[in-house]
Computed example of a mutant assay.
Amino acid sequence: MTEDTDGLAPAGPFTPEERAAVYRAIRQRRDVRGQFRPDPVDPATLRRLLQAAHDAPSVGLSQPWNFILIRDPGTRQRLHDAFQTANAQAATRFPDRKALYSSLKLQGILEAPVNLCITCDRTRGGPHVLGRTHDAATDLYSTACAVQNLWLAARAEGIGVGWVSIFDLDDLSRILALPDHVVPVAYLCIGHVTELYQQPELQARGWADRLPLDDLIFQDAWGTPPS
């Protein structure tokens, strides 16, 4: 395949096998909480996952992400303690399902061989970023794209990923010494797993069900079903 002088290359679909692999990674991606094995992630594999994240699209090509690998046991323990505090507070929000909530394992901070925080630098690209002039949150959306890229690449590599979202963000920022202009977007636990749920764990455990796609598709305006 050759490129022209403008850096363009012919476009076309993947092979059926390649296409099936992409959709399989999307369909079988899982939020891993308690299935981590202790064996380390090969550095070359981890590098590929970080590269996949870095290959994500970003508003104005601002690439607002950074990747903080958390290896120090003491730092992990402080993060685990911060999670425990936030999780105890969160449990009170679900009084009718407190027992089920308390039975869910919602993090693998101490068990997973790799902990990774993906952040967003709200100042990267300067005060005016192409595409961000009217929606300041597009840098956060861009960072979320990087998270999803890493997650799908990890599934293709046979690596599990769990997103720990139950933190007081001020605690997370303090423990990781983040500057004021940098915000944590995703705290990820990463490692090899022996098995995965065949459907999302929260669905398997009876917390929620996946909504039918047809109920979520509108045409031209909110609430108007497609013709």
Rank of each mutant, 00 (worst) to 15 (best):
V164E: 00
R174A: 10
A91R: 12
A25V: 11
R47T: 12
D135W: 09
P64W: 08
Q107N: 14
D96Q: 14
L106W: 08
P113V: 13
I159G: 02
V32C: 11
V41C: 09
P38A: 12
F218T: 03
L110R: 11
W65I: 03
R24Q: 04
G206V: 04
Q35S: 07
A44D: 10
F94K: 04
T15W: 08
R76S: 15
R124Q: 08
A136M: 07
R27V: 10
Y23T: 03
Y197D: 15
A52H: 00
S58E: 01
S102W: 00
R27E: 15
F83I: 05
D214I: 06
V59N: 04
S62F: 04
P73T: 09
E17T: 07
A177Q: 02
P200K: 08
L169R: 13
P40G: 11
P64S: 09
Q63P: 02
L152Q: 07
P43N: 02
D214W: 00
Q107L: 07
R71H: 14
R37H: 04
A88I: 10
R24A: 03
R132Y: 11
V22P: 02
D42G: 10
T194A: 15
L116K: 03
G158S: 05
R24Y: 00
S165W: 02
G162E: 04
A88F: 07
G223L: 02
I26R: 06
V185S: 00
P225S: 07
R78M: 10
A177I: 00
W65F: 09
A136H: 07
D121F: 06
Q51F: 01
Q107Y: 06
I190Q: 05
K105G: 02
R37C: 09
A156L: 04
Y187R: 01
E195Y: 05
T92R: 11
R76W: 12
R29N: 06
L106M: 14
Q203T: 12
L188E: 03
L100S: 13
A144G: 14
A88W: 03
D170P: 00
L79S: 06
P73D: 10
I175V: 05
T194S: 13
A56Y: 03
A44V: 05
L176F: 01
T75M: 14
A11E: 08
G7F: 06
R33P: 01
T224D: 01
G223S: 07
G158N: 05
V147A: 10
C189N: 14
E3S: 13
T5D: 10
L116F: 07
R27F: 12
G158T: 06
P10E: 09
Q77P: 00
A20F: 05
